[in-house]
């Protein structure tokens, strides 16, 4: 029967094609050695991050916008993109987990991370700034940072003071827990610098912290529409964002870096 043969041959071709492409070939050599090499290259980013904004401004570069930073890094490993633009701290985590990747020494602009609050809610902005100020002054914020970033990580776990008053209601924080060490999932809980920092802020304000996970590009919309009170997700202050939300004082600084294959 002709039909049968034809189908068998087609099936065999498809299977073997899948297998060959699946293993065979190796990833291409790295071609990005400095910032100047980026024009004309394919750059992987996480949709809506500052990396995305920077990459979009690079002349002639193709920007591949993944839903997760980790997907962009995966694509880099497989040779699907030439470089990934991402914040320094998550970059460190990704590189430490992937031997074949490295961070270029040349950092991008230094950025300020801050808490996003609904536009016009100056009262909450004020209260958060006060709390942040206290945490900065008494060293709590530094300890939280040290606990998540740097060589002494894990040595300064934050715990809420005993008998903390929580009579002032709840505070809903929108975040995207795919951005270690600022926020990531541990079991079913969101952990990280941002989570601990907000816990400390809530402890000061006498509020209950509730963390909602969502995609990064939805966070500002969630704050704007009142689905969340604050957005905390390693979020850099940019003029565009400032048009749509209030930002608190900066609670830490970060840099954008370029990850490439070794």
């Amino acid at each position: 029967m002709k039909l049968k043969k034809l189908i068998s041959v087609m099936a065999a071709c498809m299977l073997s094609a899948a297998v060959f492409t699946g293993c065979g070939e190796s990833v291409p050599e790295n071609t990005v050695h400095s910032l100047d090499d980026l024009p004309g290259k394919t750059i992987g980013v996480q949709l809506g991050t500052t990396g995305d904004i920077f990459a979009t401004d690079i002349e002639g570069a193709t920007v591949e916008r993944y839903n997760k930073g980790a997907d962009a890094v995966q694509a880099l490993k497989q040779g699907k993109v030439d470089a990934v633009l991402i914040d320094n701290e998550p970059a460190k985590v990704f590189v430490s987990n992937n031997e074949e990747l490295m961070i270029l020494d040349e950092p991008f602009a230094v950025e300020e991370y801050a808490i996003a609050i609904k536009k016009g809610n100056d009262e909450l902005t004020e209260k958060i700034n006060t709390a942040l100020g206290e945490l900065k002054n008494d060293g709590t914020l530094d300890n939280i940072r040290k606990n998540w970033i740097g060589d002494e990580a894990g040595n300064y776990p934050y715990t809420s003071p005993e008998g903390t008053d929580r009579s002032n209601g709840t505070l809903v924080m929108a975040t995207n827990p795919e951005f270690p060490p600022y926020e990531s999932m541990s079991g079913d809980a969101v952990v990280g610098f941002d989570a601990d920092m907000m816990q400390a802020v809530c402890d000061r304000m006498g509020m209950e912290l509730i963390i909602e996970s969502m995609s990064f590009d939805s966070i500002i919309t969630a704050v704007d529409s009142g689905k969340a009170d604050v957005g905390v997700a390693g979020m850099t202050v940019t003029p565009e964002r400032q048009e749509n939300v209030n930002f608190s004082d900066s609670y830490t600084t970060a840099t954008q870096v370029i990850i490439v294959r070794k």
């Binding site: 949709l47 916008r65 993944y66 997907d71 939805s218 500002i220 919309t221 704007d224």
Partner: peptide, 19 residues
């Protein structure tokens, strides 16, 4: 990372913060 219609909308949303 295919730039389909939905992604196009997502991108605009991610730069304008208007849903």
């Amino acid at each position: 990372a295919v730039n389909d219609l939905t992604k196009g909308g997502d991108y605009i949303r991610s730069v304008t913060y208007q849903a």
